[in-house]
Simulated scan of single mutants.
Amino acid sequence: MKAYAVRLAESHEPVGLFVVEHPSDLRYLVDEFCATQGMEYLRIGAGGLFFSKTDARWPCPADVETDDFISPPFDSLTESWMYVVDQEGGWKPMPYL
């Protein structure tokens, strides 16, 4: 499995971080929430992300509807991932359905 960062191609707004076997599989994960047109991806190596202190829990508490449960946004990427995603080269157009 490999990790990928996905962003909007025009604005460079981050969409998410995904782990898939092959880049073509990204379209299925991203398509769960939004159309993949106009997006691009970049393979990223070892690294991670940090979450703010929050009341959110994984797994979702039993008394919360899972459709209403939203994970907290992350505060920061590790330096290794920040360095990679800040580079202009290497981003590829996202395959779309």
Rank of each mutant, 00 (worst) to 15 (best):
V20N: 03
P23H: 03
Q37N: 14
P72Q: 06
A9M: 02
F74G: 07
F33E: 15
L26Y: 04
D63M: 07
E32I: 01
C34P: 04
E21Y: 00
A62W: 00
Y41G: 03
G90R: 03
F50H: 13
L17P: 07
P93V: 07
V6N: 01
P59G: 02
A5V: 05
G48V: 05
A35K: 00
S80G: 04
G48Y: 07
S11N: 07
A3Q: 11
C34F: 06
M82Y: 12
M94Q: 05
E65M: 06
K53Q: 15
E21K: 00
K92I: 01
P93A: 00
L17G: 04
L42V: 05
S76T: 14
L77A: 08
G45E: 10
L42W: 05
G45T: 08
A9L: 09
E32H: 06
E65G: 14
R57K: 12
R7T: 09
Q87C: 10
M1K: 12
L26H: 03
H12G: 11
A9G: 08
E32S: 07
V6I: 07
M39C: 13
R27A: 15
A9S: 13
V6D: 01
C60G: 04
L49C: 10
K53Y: 09
L8K: 09
V84S: 12
C34L: 13
S76G: 14
C60N: 07
A3F: 01
G45R: 00
K53E: 15
V19G: 11
Q87G: 09
M94N: 05
M94L: 01
M39S: 06
F74A: 04
W81H: 06
K53S: 14
G48R: 06
A56E: 12
F33N: 10
Y4G: 01
V20E: 03
V15A: 02
A62P: 11
F18V: 06
I70R: 13
L42N: 00
L17Q: 01
V84H: 08
P14L: 04
Q37G: 10
K53P: 10
D63T: 12
F18M: 00
W58Y: 13
F74N: 14
H12V: 12
F51R: 12
Q87D: 15
S71P: 09
L26G: 08
Y28I: 10
L49M: 14
Q87A: 11
P14H: 04
Y28P: 03
A56C: 11
M94T: 02
V84K: 13
A9C: 09
E32N: 07
K2Q: 10
L97N: 12
D86C: 13
S52T: 13
S52A: 15
L8V: 12
S80V: 08
I70Y: 11
C34M: 14
S76P: 09
V15Y: 03
D25N: 07
D25G: 02
V20A: 05
D86V: 02
D68R: 00
S11M: 03
A3I: 10
P23Q: 02
A5P: 04
V85Q: 06
V84N: 07
R27S: 15
Q87N: 09
I44F: 08
L8S: 11
K53I: 12
G38Q: 06
H22I: 07
S71Y: 15
V6Q: 05
A3P: 05
